[in-house]
Structure formats: C-alpha cells, structure tokens
Simulated assay, not measured.
Amino acid sequence: MDPSDDCGALQFECPRCGHTETDDYEVIESGTAMDWRCGSCLRLFSVLLTECEHCGCESVHPALTGAEQANLNDVRCQHCGKPSLRHEELTESSEVL
C-alpha cells in the first residue's frame, strides 16, 4: 500500500457511536472546529481538520463538542505522529511581533 494513500481519505469516527464518517465533499474547513451530524446515530459532534506542516497530510479530529477540541497548537498528525504545527516557527514569529 502506498503511504500517500493513508492521508488521502478524510475518514473519522463518530465519538458517540463509532460509525465511520467520510468528508466526501471536503466541506470541513481547516483549522476551525465545526459541527458534523453522524449518518448513523444522527447526533451532532465536533470535527477539527488540520494539515500537517511536516508531511502535508490532513487529519480530522472528532470530539463530542467544540469546547472539547484540542488546542490547535497541541494537535498531532494522525499520519506521521508529529505536531501538526511547527512550534519553533510559531515561537519565532511571535517574537517578531
């Protein structure tokens, strides 16, 4: 299996019932938590899409509510396991301000 295939499909599980969801139409906005309705249990939950600055793969992070979503700076890539954002670049850019 080609490793690039792993980061192609945006699939995630409903945190309430475990049903696998797919963002077929790419409606999830990167970096912003948004509501998603499960196709099985029909309940709402929160999803956060991030793009890894190390490997370029997108990861979807589900949570029961938006308030339970991880801080964007603490999110790890589901493909390579590294922090999605490069913290050293964030530190350097904040020092410039």
Rank of each mutant, 00 (worst) to 15 (best):
D35R: 13
M1T: 15
E68G: 00
M34N: 15
Y25T: 15
E68Y: 05
S94P: 13
L44S: 05
E53K: 05
M34D: 11
C14S: 07
C80M: 10
S4K: 13
C41H: 09
S4R: 05
G39I: 01
G56C: 03
C17V: 12
E95V: 13
M1N: 14
C41I: 13
A9D: 08
C41W: 09
L97Q: 04
T50G: 03
T22G: 03
S59A: 13
E89T: 07
E68H: 08
R43V: 08
L10A: 04
C55D: 07
E51N: 06
S40K: 15
C14T: 07
K82E: 14
S59R: 09
L97D: 02
G56N: 02
V75Q: 02
G8Q: 12
E29Y: 09
S94E: 12
R76L: 11
P83L: 06
T65A: 14
E89V: 13
E53Y: 10
H19W: 14
S30N: 10
D5S: 10
V47D: 05
A70T: 04
E21C: 13
D24F: 12
C52G: 11
S84T: 14
L44N: 01
T22Y: 00
E88S: 14
E53L: 07
A9E: 05
S30I: 15
E92G: 02
S93W: 15
D23P: 15
D23T: 00
P83Q: 02
L42Y: 02
C14N: 01
C17S: 08
L90N: 15
H54A: 01
R86G: 10
P3E: 08
M1I: 14
G39C: 09
S40D: 05
L49D: 03
L44R: 04
V96Q: 13
C7Y: 02
S59E: 13
D35W: 11
M34I: 06
E21M: 06
T32M: 12
H19Y: 12
S59L: 02
S94V: 13
P15H: 00
E95P: 01
D2N: 14
K82T: 11
E89N: 07
T22H: 06
E51I: 05
M34T: 15
T22A: 14
